[in-house]
Design a protein around this nucleic acid. Sequence first.
DNA 1: TTGAAAGCGCTAACAA
DNA 2: TTGTTAGCGCTTTCAA
Lengths: 331, 331
Amino acid sequence: MTKVTLIDVGREAGVSAITVSRALRSPEKVSDSLRAKVEAAVRKLGYVPNQSASALASSETNSIVVMIPSMSNHVFTDVLRGIEDALKDTRITLQIGNTGYDPLEEERILRSFLNPAPKGVILAGIEQTDETRSMLANIGVPVVQIMDLSDAPIGKIVGFSHEKAAMSAVQHLLDQGYQKIGFLGAQMDPRSQKRLAGFKRTLQNADLLDEQAIVVTNRPSDVRTGSNLYGKLMQQYPECDAIFCNNDDMALGVLFECQRRGINIPRDFGLCGFNDLGVTAECVPTISTVQTPLFEIGQTAGTILLKGLEQYPEDTIDLGFAVAPRESSRK
Amino acid sequence: MTKVTLIDVGREAGVSAITVSRALRSPEKVSDSLRAKVEAAVRKLGYVPNQSASALASSETNSIVVMIPSMSNHVFTDVLRGIEDALKDTRITLQIGNTGYDPLEEERILRSFLNPAPKGVILAGIEQTDETRSMLANIGVPVVQIMDLSDAPIGKIVGFSHEKAAMSAVQHLLDQGYQKIGFLGAQMDPRSQKRLAGFKRTLQNADLLDEQAIVVTNRPSDVRTGSNLYGKLMQQYPECDAIFCNNDDMALGVLFECQRRGINIPRDFGLCGFNDLGVTAECVPTISTVQTPLFEIGQTAGTILLKGLEQYPEDTIDLGFAVAPRESSRK
DNA sequence: TTGAAAGCGCTAACAA
DNA sequence: TTGTTAGCGCTTTCAA
């Protein structure tokens, strides 16, 4: 079974290689009897197409490139599941690149993934380098950005407004009667910065903003970081009576730290997370959060590439968000 | 910048295409002045190698295929991080396949990834189909299985004993004075089955096994499932005084459910998770667990493929595990 | 509906 | 140290 080629299959079926290729690629353009013969030969010999040869000859691949900042963050694995869902009945393969939140790394990896050109490219965020943009333009490959919104997308963009989402979350805490609201942020990528901007804006409008109420780090977002930053915040802003966290795992860390310190949530302290990563709906008390359409973003991006960008009238697709009020903010 | 080829670079540098290829692939075999000229031309023209053409001509790719059962389970993203770490200073690309815990799906995806042949293949578990095994044998590609141990690995295998790990966990609960120990299992893949076997064996040895103490589901492992299965277990085995969960997120679900029911952990009830996925070290109380070398497994598998299987004397590499006693089992 | 010829961009093997 | 020739396995184009 060493290296079965189209020629071998053709010999077995008594036809030429090109005929086999056609029988496999466009079965409708071939007589029934031929198709049956070819399929039998393929099965008998265990033929598997050589993707390199195919891509080289046709200058077309069957892969879609996805560049995400991190595999450890559930946010992006949820998005990936959405993309996989959109592509599940096709022969399209995902080529996943991990950028580590670095646009230059994104550029470097993407370059190596762009020749031969993939069917499409999905990029997280809108912070691509100029070089990345010009590479993509030169190649002319369909591009979908995800997770954010933009007035000037490279191709299409599917996401939601991080600033508005944060504003809604903070407004929710205000509506519940909390006044001294703090912000805890890890992994301060550009979308987190927008959430911080939304936080600031809402409190400014209410004339309640205190710069001491903001604690951020560039470390990855996780439970322990939530606990740690909570401690830091309470030192520099002791009057704090509620927190908005830029990711659910941070909020969980705050909850645990409050339990350790004997602080009652929601009576003494309000809490709201972000992204609805599952566990905030289960813990005690449940933690209010902002539901973001992660799976749907992936699904939509995949579908757009599948159907062709031109099938979608708008360049920007805002999938919105929803504040999910739970026990942690029911004062 | 449309389609710059080696010939274009060669023309720019005043040499032939093959010389450019050599200058790029083995710079040490080329004169300094030539190398400089070629590098300048590459930069000027923005040349990027066509991987399909390269793979076709050399019958060699620069990719390693990784087949994992799920992207949503942190267990496998930790392993992936390990693989990426081992490969970070190379030009090797990961081709990730998501099997959904289905050996036939693994076979299907793997087949499409095997022509042209990758540099190596990493497979989770030991449940490959006969067809998968024979494909891999025919191609002669280096294979590393991970996450488990086996007497007859396809190539090498890197993992630990799930049965022994579970036995240690259950023994720990016994040592702490718990007697009526239950088992909660989701996503009952073959490795989970081995953990269940370890659970049974240890309790059998102590003459404390009750079949009513076992509750499993094939749904994915998550926090809510932990809470739900806890309820089911307490119905059918009310005398239960401790639980061993087959994954940390399930254990967290049990903790939350106990909080809701006013059951004190560890005084009234003991708890131990599995895999040490981070959050069990942070919650209140902290949850005892079994630390498994997920990152190291990935790292080792990547390194083995990088250096060549033959560099490693043993076929089976047991990276072990460690019970991490925490508050949830300190009766 | 099927086939022959040519070539995708690169590299192995050999030659100079 | 550099170049020539041939060909990897497939698909495109054109012809039958």
